[in-house]
Design a protein around this nucleic acid. Structure first.
Lengths: 392, 392
DNA sequence: CTCCGGTGGGATAACGTTATCCGCAGTGTG
DNA sequence: CACACTGCGGATAACGTTATCCCACCGGAG
């Protein structure tokens, strides 16, 4: 029974003594089938251990494949893992299976993946576009009926060469940019600009010299966070010091080295806005290695950040909402909606712990010491909107 | 051009003025095609923007679908995200696309997923079996030609009801259990038992009363870690105190509450072996809330654990190796290998930071203080095999 | 009693691909 | 010069499913 070929609908029909068409109707949940016939078919399916071949079914015209793909930069990254989990959850509820792939920030690999996914006839695609999606991407994107861009906008070269990023206007709500002739894709991003401004504002009480630390500003997300950072400085009447923007450092070790050099050079820095996870880990490492305390605010939460020394304050995008929204928009598109593309911006919320506060005392004490729960030296945080929620 | 139906091989053949068969040969990379003909076909493909329909191709007998699925408990969990990343990387290199799904530890959902994946005719399947895979699993598993169990063995009810877990013998190498009539599946697990023993041994210098903290022991991984814990106690001539095994706590908040109660009751505990991530976070939270220091060792690393206060010592399974190995075994099976099932055990390595050491001084100092890089009070760690490597 | 409408089921044609079976042409050798 | 072999290309049959078309049958009504 278990060896040999699988049973097909023809086998089931023969075993049940009915026509192929009737089995197809039964399998597809039609109602107009006599109960007695239905029972015979059910018995035959059970006996033959029949499983409908959905690949065969999907090649018929007008049939969906039931497959959706998500291309991120790296699934192993907890940031994208959180998003992927939310995407998969929504899609499964809608009956889709999720193909997950990593572009590894490589335009060629990215295009190869998209091509293979088109060959697989995915019903829809959610992508985090790599920094340089490569020359083939613009043409490939047009072949995807349902497309959602996640986390980052992408510059569509096909858009009359104007170089206008798709929907990077004023991210302060749900809007429709309607760039004519451009990529017809929805966009789901975090409110990076507002988040960057928020993080910087949290640091300003400690002093005006707030440094921005992060990956290359060629990344739209990083650029937006930096713009928010500058917004906050400008609003506070502070002239931004270009020397305090430390960009282009990707790995946490590189960040640690860069910030270490900055500190060792005696740069005057009142606080650090670490614009992503790796930057935050790098800054904290550099500080810890030197036994220094400086206010730090990170972007995107880190598991166990409340146990850091000091507990790390972050501004946190709602990653589950990003994934959920992207999946829902995609499902809507697959269902045939031809509304104009939308830009959906998910909020970035502060999670106030202690690292954004000025160091209570620059004096150094020898030996690690257990701190009582609430040291009286730390002032209450300014207007706490979100306090440490235990997520997951 | 972009509206309307996709071009098929027939269209390409017509446009190129050749036969369908010739286009098929060209697409499948056959060599016996005249260069001039090949050029005509290439031009036609380019013009018509033809993409081979791999779903249609895969329904032919003897053809692979090129799809492989991975079912974990929860993709959003960094533990499984790391594994998933490694799996995807290997599979992509072999030309497969990866379907990723979460069982959410629900046997029914798990069986539904497997059923849908069989309908999709996946070439192979890697699964982290849920705690209770449900009644349908045993039958479904036999329908999968290439199957690899990941992270946990599973009790196969079909195995003559003996209740012997598939390959949970002595996990100290690569072996073939060859349980007759049982599930023909490879198994890739971490060396949980050795890891548990190692973690406990790291804690013993601080005192004999080492607590085990973790999720339910019904989970094979947790049970193995606990067995290792008992091994280490036994080897040290210590009689294990059942009151020091705190199992069945799943969420970190629950763990924090449970350990908090234990501490508040004045239980004498010399150290904590936190048998998974959530347990570690819970134990550290409970300690931090009370301003207490106790030696702690976790199982599986946490991003930024070196920044915890104190830096968290863990024993770390090589998650990338787990994923890589599982994928490679699967690919080998898909290729037609009919060797006996193997159990592959990946090592668990210690990452020594400071939390496993006895608190240097029970005295409390007010206010968080910056510690110099190497406090003289902390003794050198016993036989350091792996020292803090900056991974990712 | 007959006719008509409605319903359930049977034959059959796609869907886009691969593969088998040939035939034809070109070339090398006897 | 003729025959045989090789090598490439054309018609055609699956693969397993869905859907269109149509007929047979049954009940109710005229």
């Amino acid at each position: 029974m278990e060896s040999g070929k699988r049973a097909t609908m023809v086998d089931v029909a023969a075993a049940a003594g009915v026509a192929l068409r009737t089995v197809s109707r039964y399998v597809n949940g039609q109602t107009n089938i006599a109960p007695e016939i239905a029972a015979r078919i059910a018995a035959a399916i059970e006996t033959l251990n029949f499983r409908r071949n959905s690949a065969a079914a999907s090649i018929r015209p007008g049939q969906r494949s039931g497959l959706v793909a998500l291309i991120t930069e790296d699934i192993a990254n907890p940031f994208y893992a959180a998003v992927t989990g939310a995407v998969e959850s929504v899609l499964r509820r809608h009956g889709y299976l999720l193909l997950a792939a990593s572009s590894e920030e490589d335009g060629g690999r990215f295009a190869d993946l998209v091509e293979r996914l088109i060959e697989r006839r995915v019903d829809g695609l959610i992508v985090v576009p790599p920094l340089d999606p490569g020359p083939r991407w613009a043409a490939l994107a047009r072949e995807i009926r349902a497309l959602v861009l996640l986390d980052r906008p992408v510059v569509t070269e096909a858009a009359a060469g104007t170089g206008t990023p798709t929907g990077t206007g004023t991210p302060t709500g749900t809007e429709a940019p309607t760039a004519p002739g451009a990529l017809r894709a929805d966009l789901v991003v975090a409110d990076d600009r507002a988040g960057g401004a928020l993080a910087t504002r949290l640091l300003l009480p400690a002093g005006p010299r707030v440094a921005f630390v992060g990956d290359t500003l060629a990344l739209p997300t990083l650029a937006a966070r930096h713009r928010g950072h500058l917004d906050a400085l400008h609003d506070a009447g502070i002239h931004a010091d270009p020397a305090l923007t430390v960009a282009g450092l990707r790995e946490s070790s590189t960040v640690a080295a860069g910030i270490g050099a900055l500190l060792d050079a005696g740069a005057a820095v009142d606080g650090f806005f670490a614009a992503n996870n790796r930057a935050a880990l790098g800054v904290l490492s550099a500080l810890a290695e030197r036994g220094l305390r400086r206010p730090v605010v990170g972007f995107d939460d880190i598991e166990g950040a409340q146990l850091f020394d000091p507990p790390l304050t972050v501004v946190r995008p709602d990653l589950a909402a990003m994934g959920r929204t992207a999946a829902e928009l995609l499902v809507e598109r697959i269902a045939g909606s031809d509304r104009d593309p939308v830009v959906h911006v998910v909020p970035v919320d502060p999670v106030l712990r202690r690292s954004h506060l000025a160091a209570p005392a620059p004096a150094r004490v020898t030996g690690p010491a257990a701190a009582p729960p609430a040291p009286a030296t730390s002032p209450p945080p300014p207007a706490p909107p979100t306090r440490e929620r235990d997520h997951q």
